[in-house]
């Protein structure tokens, strides 16, 4: 997700040197530039406020979550703390989760898998995982994850036997859910950095298990 900051900064002022001419922007795209300029002119927010939010979001990525998961796999005491007090435990790892109201970690086991959705909106643990993927926000995922979780998982390449219980969480309120995936077999002795590479974004939403070691 690359982003030329200078372009956002000056996008409303100059249409040159941009791959997509500004006049081709859609109705709402034009309006956000207008809203931005008016809010700054009226002193409601500043360009710095906006830039700070861009920088904050760019610093968030599934790598943060993967770091938490790998540490939890490697260190049982850390895992316990992560489940008991996720926000404080994030701070311990230098991950700022203070903007989340409440943060809940759902631990997968051999018998149980969790899947997270927000049917009413698109709530997502952004401070931990960054902006949500397009599919998570899609109307089809929001419609089907609650009553066809196994079908959705199958589309992502995961087929689970009936004996494994699926627990879908619809995050309708202020709780933000992160799935702590099951540590793959054959990873004994791997370092935290190696383990973190197996932890995909989708495995922390719960549609699939983490990658298998090579």
């Amino acid at each position: 997700m690359s982003m030329d900051r200078s372009d956002v900064h000056h996008a409303a002022d100059t249409g040159e040197d941009h791959p997509h001419p500004k006049h081709e922007l859609g109705y709402y795209a034009k309006r956000i530039y207008a809203i931005r300029d008016l809010l700054i002119e009226k002193g409601v927010i500043t360009q710095d406020d906006i830039q700070r939010q861009i920088d904050y979001q760019e610093a968030r990525s599934p790598a943060n979550g993967a770091q938490l998961v790998a540490r939890a796999w490697a260190d049982p005491a850390f895992k316990k703390r992560l489940i008991d007090d996720p926000k404080a435990t994030c701070a311990e790892m230098g991950i700022d989760a203070t903007s989340i109201n409440e943060f809940v970690v759902l631990e997968n086991t051999e018998r149980v898998r969790h899947l997270v959705v927000c049917t009413l909106c698109s709530c997502y643990p952004r401070p931990i995982l960054g902006r949500p993927p397009d599919w998570y926000k899609s109307l089809n995922y929001r419609s089907r994850a609650v009553n066809d979780p196994r079908g959705v998982m199958r589309e992502f390449g995961q087929e689970l036997p009936d004996e494994v219980e699926i627990r879908v969480h619809d995050s309708t309120a202020d709780m933000r859910y992160l799935v702590l995936p099951l540590r793959p077999r054959g990873t004994e002795g791997m370092s935290e950095a190696e383990l973190a590479k197996l932890v995909t974004r989708d495995s922390m939403i719960g549609v699939v298990d983490p990658l298998a070691p090579q």
């Binding site: 997700m1 979001q57 419609s143």
Partner: peptide
């Protein structure tokens, strides 16, 4: 907006890179 359980097709897993105006909307 309340669509949980409605019939729907496959989940399109294609990602699009955010445009500048989308990043701006998010940040504002």
């Amino acid at each position: 907006h309340d669509m949980g359980g409605l019939p729907a097709g496959p989940v399109d897993q294609t990602e699009h890179a955010l445009s500048d105006w989308e990043i701006l909307a998010d940040a504002v």
